[in-house]
């Protein structure tokens, strides 16, 4: 019977995590939209879920869709420096990185709406989790 309860808890946790992921992405998109409308940000950023990069998997990773992607609507190809700057700002926020990791993300991707390349980071490299 305890196993059955545990199995049920796991299902509830899965739905709860899914809801938290949606809320996190919606929160980011809301802030980005407001910053763009108020003129604080010169380009519009949009966060979405992507497939992720399989070699970056960790113990919290989702089986599918484990990438946190930020699309920059700049209308031009971003320079590598711009892309890296945006990524570094995300990675510098420890709370956000920890939250992303426990919600099943393992890859951070940043790319513009034009062009064919972007940058990606392994989130596990920026966090100490599951130790101790």
């Amino acid at each position: 019977m305890p196993s059955l309860v545990n199995f049920w808890t796991r299902i509830i946790d899965w739905f709860r995590d899914r809801q938290d992921r949606v809320q996190l992405i919606a929160g980011f998109n809301r802030a980005a939209r407001e910053a763009f409308i108020n003129g604080e940000a010169p380009t519009h950023l949009e966060a979405c879920v992507s497939r992720g990069y399989r070699p970056y998997k960790h113990q919290f990773s989702n089986f599918f869709n484990s990438g946190f992607r930020i699309k920059v609507f700049s209308g031009k190809q971003l320079s590598k420096q711009d892309t890296v700057n945006i990524g570094n700002v995300i990675l510098a926020n420890d709370t956000l990185v920890r939250r992303l990791v426990v919600l099943g993300f393992d890859t951070l991707e940043v790319h513009s709406d034009v062009g064919t390349y972007g940058c990606r980071w392994q989130l596990r490299d920026y966090i100490m989790i599951g130790e101790g």
């Binding site: 996190l24 980011f28 980005a32 604080e40 950023l45 113990q59 700057n85 700002v89 510098a92």
Partner: peptide
């Protein structure tokens, strides 16, 4: 599973994330 849930709870209770600051930091 218990260890994982404990870590999840701990991280989720860290408080709200200031997304506005993150977006502004990305450009300024």
């Amino acid at each position: 599973d218990n260890k994982r849930s404990r870590i999840k709870q701990q991280v989720k209770s860290e408080g709200d994330i200031d997304f506005g600051n993150i977006v502004n930091s990305a450009f300024g």
